Simulated assay, not measured.
Amino acid sequence: MVNFNVRFPDDLHARVRTQAAADRRSINSEILYLIEVGLAAVLADAGSPGGDPTTPALLPEKPDSSSA
């Protein structure tokens, strides 16, 4: 696994921290999840007719982690 350092603006860090707590995940796991979902959405949009890979796609809803 690659160790990668990134700087976040304070407001974005707070949003990720809040979402991670709501999903009962670590901040690191939440960031990885969001990257995976975002990349999957971009790939799906790029493959659709008229899809523009330079335009961000809307993220799908996350599964409810409280039932696990």
Rank of each mutant, 00 (worst) to 15 (best):
residue 1 M to S: 14
residue 1 M to A: 14
residue 3 N to Q: 13
residue 3 N to R: 14
residue 3 N to A: 14
residue 4 F to K: 14
residue 4 F to Y: 11
residue 4 F to P: 03
residue 5 N to C: 08
residue 5 N to H: 06
residue 6 V to Y: 00
residue 6 V to M: 03
residue 7 R to H: 07
residue 7 R to K: 08
residue 9 P to H: 07
residue 11 D to R: 02
residue 11 D to H: 07
residue 12 L to T: 04
residue 12 L to H: 06
residue 13 H to L: 14
residue 13 H to I: 04
residue 14 A to H: 02
residue 14 A to Y: 06
residue 16 V to D: 01
residue 16 V to K: 01
residue 17 R to W: 01
residue 17 R to F: 04
residue 18 T to S: 10
residue 18 T to N: 09
residue 18 T to M: 03
residue 20 A to S: 05
residue 21 A to G: 11
residue 21 A to T: 12
residue 21 A to E: 11
residue 22 A to K: 12
residue 22 A to E: 10
residue 22 A to Q: 11
residue 22 A to G: 13
residue 23 D to A: 15
residue 23 D to S: 15
residue 23 D to R: 11
residue 24 R to W: 00
residue 24 R to G: 11
residue 24 R to C: 08
residue 25 R to C: 08
residue 27 I to Q: 05
residue 28 N to V: 08
residue 29 S to M: 09
residue 30 E to V: 08
residue 30 E to F: 11
residue 30 E to Q: 15
residue 31 I to E: 02
residue 31 I to K: 00
residue 32 L to A: 14
residue 33 Y to N: 15
residue 34 L to P: 00
residue 35 I to Q: 06
residue 35 I to H: 04
residue 35 I to G: 06
residue 37 V to H: 02
residue 37 V to A: 12
residue 38 G to L: 05
residue 39 L to V: 14
residue 40 A to E: 12
residue 40 A to N: 12
residue 41 A to M: 11
residue 42 V to G: 03
residue 43 L to G: 13
residue 43 L to K: 13
residue 44 A to C: 10
residue 45 D to Q: 15
residue 45 D to A: 15
residue 46 A to N: 06
residue 46 A to R: 11
residue 47 G to L: 11
residue 47 G to Q: 14
residue 48 S to G: 12
residue 48 S to F: 01
residue 49 P to L: 09
residue 49 P to M: 06
residue 50 G to L: 03
residue 50 G to V: 04
residue 51 G to R: 03
residue 51 G to H: 00
residue 53 P to Y: 00
residue 53 P to T: 04
residue 54 T to S: 13
residue 54 T to E: 07
residue 55 T to M: 09
residue 56 P to Y: 02
residue 57 A to Q: 09
residue 59 L to D: 04
residue 59 L to H: 04
residue 59 L to A: 08
residue 60 P to G: 00
residue 61 E to C: 09
residue 61 E to F: 02
residue 62 K to P: 14
residue 62 K to E: 08
residue 63 P to T: 13
residue 64 D to W: 00
residue 65 S to W: 00
residue 65 S to R: 14
residue 65 S to V: 12
residue 66 S to V: 10
residue 66 S to T: 15
residue 66 S to N: 12
